[in-house]
């Protein structure tokens, strides 16, 4: 089933035409990867899916983006959208508060005040992010004291705590060591049973390892979109082939 339906989308930052006539559908409970060289628009497209682009001054979008058939840029409450479509950033950004308060931030935002209920959500989210065993004894400690990999998994747990339907990952492992990266990739494969995952990555091996579908972007255009095996084994476009074989980018 299609989770996201994007049709003829164009995006401008002021006069700069950042995304050109992009149309693609992303399926539920699958991992879709966006690849392409820096500045190709893949992060821009990702941020359009939960309207984080609204923060960029002069950002204008035409065409249609739909989540479960509902127009993202229509009447949908942006805060509800962002609850449904969670996001993990390139650089881990835990709040300067305890591990517990970090996870509880989202649920509290959405009105859960009951201590027992919060305890349960915190534990479940940390378990889902495969970091409960490491952190269960330091829930009250500041999250800023964790290692980079732990911080990023904490941020995943924090995103899961609001029970989203989609998880957007913006180069979520690019600042991490290979072991932490491996843990997060494993986690993604586990999470796709319950969530739809859309990820931006510079690491083509990563896209190949864990994604089901891959979209290749170049200079604001989507060059090719197919299931990952096809993209990497027999790309239809010459540019895609050149990129994945490392001839530019």
């Amino acid at each position: 089933m299609d989770k996201f339906t994007i049709e003829d989308m164009n995006l401008y930052y002021g006069k700069f035409h950042a995304l050109k006539n992009v149309s693609l559908n992303m399926q539920e409970n699958k991992i879709t990867a966006f690849i392409g060289p820096s500045g190709c628009g893949k992060s821009t497209l990702l941020k359009s899916l939960n309207r984080m682009n609204d923060l960029v001054e002069g950002c204008k979008i035409t065409g249609s983006l739909k989540l479960d058939g509902e127009d993202i840029y229509g009447n949908m409450d942006v805060n509800v959208l962002r609850k449904r479509v969670g996001m993990v950033f390139q650089k881990a950004n835990p709040f300067p508060m305890s591990v517990y308060d970090n996870i509880a931030f989202g649920p509290r935002t959405h009105g859960i005040k009951n201590k027992k209920q919060l305890d349960e959500i915190v534990e479940q989210s940390l378990r889902d992010a495969a970091i409960w065993d490491e952190l269960k004894d330091r829930l009250k400690k500041s999250a800023l004291g964790l290692s980079g990999g732990q911080q990023q998994r904490l941020c995943i747990a924090r995103a899961l705590a609001v029970k989203p339907e989609v998880l957007l990952m913006d180069e979520a492992t690019s600042a991490l060591d290979p072991i932490s990266t491996g843990k997060i990739e494993e986690l993604c494969l586990k999470l796709k049973k319950d969530y739809t995952i859309v990820m931006v990555t510079h690491n083509m091996q990563q896209a190949l390892r864990i994604s089901d579908y891959t979209a290749f972007f170049l200079l604001g255009e989507m060059i090719e979109y197919n299931d990952t095996d096809t993209i990497f084994s027999s790309p239809k476009e010459k540019k895609t082939e050149e990129y994945i074989t490392g001839r530019f980018g």
Partner: peptide, 15 residues
């Protein structure tokens, strides 16, 4: 204050 705190909170659906 790093902008990332603000973005992190917004991305969780906070006003």
């Amino acid at each position: 204050v790093p902008e990332s705190y603000y973005e992190g909170a917004l991305a969780l659906g906070a006003t």
